[in-house]
């Protein structure tokens, strides 16, 4: 699971109001190289919850992202230093084994072979 996915997911157990962001419990993190696509990153950047991404990247051992969300000029500038970092954090860090933990209930959503299991139990629907 890449962090772009993590940034989109929340705990949707019935009654939970604050299911985002899910905490990452990392057991195995791998890095896989992905082709750099600035257009895609610019498109995605507008949709990202920045704080959640910074936090998530840190729990995966990557602390290069700035604390505060950079403004549009940084994103659109020809200097791609920031975009490269964003690229690495969003697409190249993989949570291979571990869990996503609901901040409200502590419910663990397991991540095996890179695939998060977001399915709810019968008593959570």
């Amino acid at each position: 699971m890449r962090l772009i996915t993590h940034n989109m997911l929340s705990c949707n157990i019935k009654g939970v109001t604050n299911g985002f962001p899910l905490k990452i419990e990392a057991e195995k993190v791998v890095e896989k190289e992905v082709d750099f696509n600035p257009d895609f990153l610019r498109h995605m950047f507008a949709k990202i919850e920045w704080k959640a991404l910074v936090e998530a990247a840190r729990s995966m051992g990557y602390a290069e992202l700035p604390e505060d969300s950079p403004d549009a000029t940084v994103i659109d500038s020809a200097d791609e230093t920031f975009l490269r970092k964003l690229h690495h954090a969003l697409l190249e860090l993989h949570l291979e084994e571990g869990a996503l933990v609901c901040p409200e209930t502590g419910r663990k959503f397991p991540v095996n072979k890179g695939i998060p299991n977001m399915l709810l139990h019968e008593d959570e629907v």
Partner: peptide, 24 residues
């Protein structure tokens, strides 16, 4: 081909998308 950005196990009837996420 490049691998999918993500594969998830989820129920389309109860999708776990965070609130506020749209037009993605």
């Amino acid at each position: 081909l490049p691998m999918p950005v993500a594969l998830l196990r989820m129920d389309n009837n109860l999708p776990p998308w965070r609130s506020g996420l749209n037009e993605i």
